[in-house]
């Protein structure tokens, strides 16, 4: 009899545990089913409500939109390309021409020029120097790559005239006399070499009595523009 009760008790316990275990799994099933239904519903809800005609309309609308946007993209791309090309062209032309203009202005002596260069101080106590000697110096400086040259403050450009008569030396009808101060802007080393080469203009002039030829390098020379006669 007691054995029977014991069996019943054990069965009861076992049954309860079994039920509990299965219940735990069914809770899981409930959660999973609801979640799954939700996921499916939200995805399909929007399109499911629409009829076949509506869907067709939606599709054709989207296709139209895609085509329009595609055409627009091509248009804009072409426009961008053209603008880029035009921009590139005009900016290069501007750059080039302003560079050329600057160079021409420097050559013509229309602008003030500043930069490194050399300063020559030429004293002539016995008045032995002739205009040709000055021209020689200027020629050497030009050969050495001088961008701008001035003599006693007068800018020397292509059309500058250097003349000599009984009264003295004239540059553009202005008389100059010793000491001559010549400034040249360019690479100081190259200008220096151009003047001091063996048998060059410095050697030639220094051999004259009473002539002193001093060359100094300067990192910040300023040469004024050509003074126009009124």
């Amino acid at each position: 009899m007691s054995q029977f009760w014991y069996f019943i008790k054990k069965l009861n316990n076992q049954a309860k545990r079994t039920q509990l275990a299965i219940a735990a799994v069914t809770v899981l099933i409930g959660i999973l089913i609801v979640t799954q239904l939700r996921a499916h519903q939200t995805a399909a809800q929007v399109l499911q409500a629409a009829t076949e005609d509506d869907l067709g309309k939606i599709v054709s609308d989207l296709n139209n939109e895609v085509n329009t946007l595609r055409a627009e993209t091509a248009d804009l791309r072409l426009q961008l390309f053209q603008i880029e090309r035009a921009n590139h062209d005009s900016s290069t032309i501007m750059k080039e021409s302003s560079k050329t203009l600057n160079n021409l202005k420097v050559i013509a002596g229309l602008t003030k020029v500043s930069g490194p260069g050399i300063k020559i101080r030429l004293t002539d106590r016995n008045s032995l120097l002739a205009s040709n000697d000055l021209v020689d110096i200027i020629t050497e400086l030009r050969g050495g790559g001088a961008e701008a040259i001035s003599l006693n403050g007068i800018r020397i450009v292509a059309r500058t005239g250097i003349m000599q008569d009984k009264r003295g030396i004239f540059i553009d009808q202005r008389q100059v006399s010793s000491p001559y101060e010549i400034m040249a802007i360019g690479s100081p080393k190259m200008l220096f070499d151009a003047l001091t080469i063996n048998g060059g203009v410095k050697d030639k002039l220094s051999s004259l009595s009473g002539v002193a030829f001093d060359i100094a390098e300067d990192n910040d020379l300023r040469i004024d523009s050509v003074a126009f006669r009124r």
């Binding site: 799994v25 409930g30 959660i31 609801v34 996921a39 995805a43």
Partner: peptide
């Protein structure tokens, strides 16, 4: 009886929790 109650609790839990699931994982 207990499993049925568990199922109902699970459904309610699922409705309350509202777990977002990407469509790719629905399988």
């Amino acid at each position: 009886m207990l499993p049925l109650i568990g199922l109902i609790i699970g459904i309610i839990l699922g409705l309350v929790l509202n777990i977002p699931v990407p469509v790719s994982l629905s399988k």
